[in-house]
C-alpha cells in the first residue's frame, strides 16, 4: 500500500515512517510548512522548525523514502493563527495544536490523499485504530503518559479508515529504542513544547502584536463586583490562572471569569473555580452519536472524569476545577474515543 507519512522531525513520526516502510508499504514523507515569519522564515520553536524539517529530511534519506516540504501557510494563518488570536481576544483559551490537526493537517492531507496517489496517511500520534465490526475505532495509545487520543477526538470513521498510527502500540521508551536501533538521528531528540507560531517567548507578547484591541485596559473585580484593581487586557488571562494577578489578597485568588465585552476579569477563591456543567459546541462523533454516561477529558494530559452527555451539555459527576472555554473536551467509553467538542461555556 502507498502511504503518506506526516513527518514533523520528531522521534515519533520518524519511527512511524520507519515502521510503515518495515511493514512493506511504499512510503512518502512530507513535512508541512505551516507558519513563517514576516520574512518568510520558518519558525524557530514548536513542532515545525527549520531544523525539524532538516531532521525529517535526513531521516527520510536514511529510510530511503522520497520526502517533500509542502506549503500550507495560507490555511494555517487563516484557520489556526487568526482563530487563536480571536479566541484569546474573546476571553477563551484556545488549543491551536488541536485546531491545526482539525483544519490543516488532517484536512489538507487526508482529504487530498488521492492527489498524493496514496491510500493511507500515517502520523506519529500516540493513539491506536482498531478495525471492528462496526468499523474502525479510535483507542488510547498504550503509553498512558503519552496518549494523544485527546487531540484526535474530532476524527470520524471515514477518516480513521484511511489513517494509521503505527506507534500507538508502543510506549515512548519503545519508540526511542526503535529509533536508536535503526540509528535514526532523532532517537534522543527532546519533545517540542512551544506553540510553533509563538516561539519561545510569552504568548501574550505575540497576542499584543496581533490583536492590540484585546489589550484594552479594564477592571479586576471580585465575585461581589468590587473593583480590586486594573489589568492591561483580557487576552492576558486564562480561567484558573493564579499568577500575574499582582495583588495581595490574603487568601489565594484565581481568575474565575472573563468578560471581554466589558473587559472585566473576575477573581475569586478556589472554590469559585468549580464547574459542574459544560455547554458544548462543534460536537463531533467518531461513529454513532453518543449520549449518557461517558468519561470526559478536558486537558491534554488530564485525568478522565465521569460525566453524562445530554445533547450539547456535559454534566460532570463531581465538579471540576479550572475548565476554560475554548478548550477541547473528548469523550471516552473505556479506552475508546467516542467523540469530542469545544467548550463553549461553563456553569458552576
Amino acid at each position: 500500500m502507498k502511504a503518506l507519512v506526516a513527518m514533523s522531525g520528531g522521534v515519533d513520526s520518524s519511527v512511524a515512517a520507519a515502521l510503515m516502510k518495515e511493514r512493506g508499504h511504499e512510503v512518502i514523507g512530507v513535512t508541512l510548512k505551516l507558519w513563517s515569519g514576516p520574512g518568510g522564515e520558518a519558525p524557530t520553536a514548536g513542532c515545525c522548525t527549520v531544523s525539524d524539517a532538516e531532521d525529517a529530511r535526513r531521516v527520510a534519506a536514511q529510510l530511503d523514502i522520497p520526502y517533500y516540504v509542502l506549503d500550507y501557510t495560507g490555511d494555517f494563518g487563516g484557520g489556526v493563527v487568526d482563530r487563536f488570536v480571536a479566541d484569546y481576544a474573546a476571553g477563551r483559551t484556545p488549543n491551536p495544536c488541536i485546531e491545526c490537526n482539525r483544519t490543516v493537517k488532517f484536512d489538507a492531507l487526508l482529504s487530498n490523499l488521492d492527489d498524493f496517489d496514496c491510500e493511507v496517511l500515517a502520523t506519529g500520534h500516540h493513539a491506536r485504530i482498531e478495525v471492528r465490526e462496526r468499523g474502525p475505532v479510535l483507542l488510547r495509545g498504550v503509553d498512558p503518559d503519552k496518549d494523544q487520543s485527546y487531540v484526535l477526538s474530532m476524527l470520524g470513521r471515514d477518516q480513521l479508515a484511511r489513517l494509521r498510527f503505527p506507534i500507538g502500540e508502543l510506549t515512548k521508551t519503545q519508540v526511542r529504542a526503535v529509533a536508536a536501533e535503526l540509528g535514526l538521528r532523532t532517537a534522543t531528540k527532546a519533545e517540542s513544547m512551544d506553540i510553533c507560531f509563538v516561539g519561545r517567548r510569552d504568548y501574550r507578547s505575540f497576542l499584543h502584536e496581533r490583536a492590540p484591541h484585546a489589550f484594552a485596559p479594564g477592571a479586576v473585580v471580585d465575585t461581589e463586583g468590587r473593583r480590586l484593581g486594573d489589568h492591561q487586557g483580557v487576552a492576558g488571562f486564562t480561567i484558573g490562572q493564579r499568577r500575574g494577578l499582582r495583588m495581595a489578597l490574603g487568601e489565594p485568588r484565581y481568575v474565575v471569569d472573563i468578560d471581554p465585552g466589558t473587559a472585566t476579569v473576575v477573581v475569586g477563591t478556589r472554590d469559585r473555580l468549580a464547574v459542574s456543567e459544560l455547554e458544548l459546541s462543534a460536537v463531533s462523533w467518531v461513529g454513532e452519536p453518543v449520549s449518557g454516561a461517558v468519561t470526559a477529558q478536558y486537558r491534554a494530559h488530564g485525568e478522565p472524569v465521569g460525566a453524562t452527555l445530554e445533547g450539547s451539555t456535559l454534566v460532570f459527576e463531581t465538579p471540576q476545577e479550572a475548565v476554560a472555554p475554548g478548550q477541547t473536551v473528548s469523550f471516552y467509553r473505556g479506552d475508546e474515543v467516542v467523540g469530542g467538542a469545544l467548550i463553549a461555556a461553563t456553569a458552576a
Binding site: 513535512t31 527549520v50 517533500y68 506549503d71 498524493f116
Partner: peptide, 27 residues
C-alpha cells in the same frame, strides 16, 4: 496545486520546480 503536481511529477521521474522555493524546499 502546483506543489502536489511537482511532487507527483517527481514520483513519475520528472524533475521540475515551482520557480521559487524557500530554504526548507517548500514552494
Amino acid at each position: 496545486s502546483g506543489q502536489i503536481l511537482l511532487m507527483r511529477l517527481d514520483q513519475a521521474g520528472v524533475a521540475a520546480s515551482a520557480g521559487s522555493a524557500c530554504q526548507s524546499g517548500a514552494a
